[in-house]
Amino acid sequence: MNITIEGLHFSYGQIPVLEEIDLSIQKGEIFAIVGPNGSGKTTLLKNISGVLTPDKGALYLNMRQIADLSTWEIARQLAMVEQDREVGFDFTVREVIAIGRIPHQSRFARENKVDRERIEEAMRVCSVDSLANRLIPEISGGERQRVFLAMALAQEPKVLLLDEPTTHLDINYQAQIMEIIRAQAIDGLTVVMALHDLNLVAQYADRAAMLDKGQILEIGKPDEVLTEANIKRVFHTDVIVTKHPLINSFYVMPLTHKFCGGQE
């Protein structure tokens, strides 16, 4: 499913957060939104998901304006994993993933065969099947993030929005999450995510947009966006961007005072 954003403006009260955003994201693409804290990444995701309504401009999912879709219609096509989600009550892992089926169930329906298959597939894809009967508060942060991802996949979305899916995760979990997402994108899922970690962007994103104080500074392939000049301008940090010697990707490394030959 394609996402098109035209001339989007959004403000919280008097404070403008997003200005003149134009974007178009293709089916099956992994699209990363990068930028420093407060640059509007989460706000942009919330505008795409319909939680927030833009002041100006339009958003389309496959030519249909999001503002015209009901909450229900949106939920059947779009899933989102917010940052720091907290689950009220001690649900089991499987119960949480089953909640992801709600948009496809009628009010009184019990879990049917299709539901069960989707739930089990999502659990397998995210390798949480062995956790099925564990309680949500008991599992680790990395496991929980995979559970929320499985819940979102059980929702059978065409578009998946992720807000910092790898924050607080160990490096092995980060890679695991990104590999799951990549496999889903190959199967046609459109993924839009806000990411802090520029190296993950370099490695996994098809395209990226860099936000600077609510405006898009640059859109393009990761190597076009994550340039030393752009990063210096937006993050006010000197970095080296180098091609990785082993993998077909590049990496971003901050230059500390020490490396520049200065005193600590």
Partner: peptide
């Protein structure tokens, strides 16, 4: 009881519930 599953969705937080199609 008819609205009980909304409470399951709400357990995911207000935004979580919204993304499951529930206002």
């Amino acid at each position: 009881i008819a609205f009980s599953r909304d409470l399951n969705a709400l357990a995911m937080g207000e935004e979580g519930a919204f993304h499951l199609g529930i206002n």
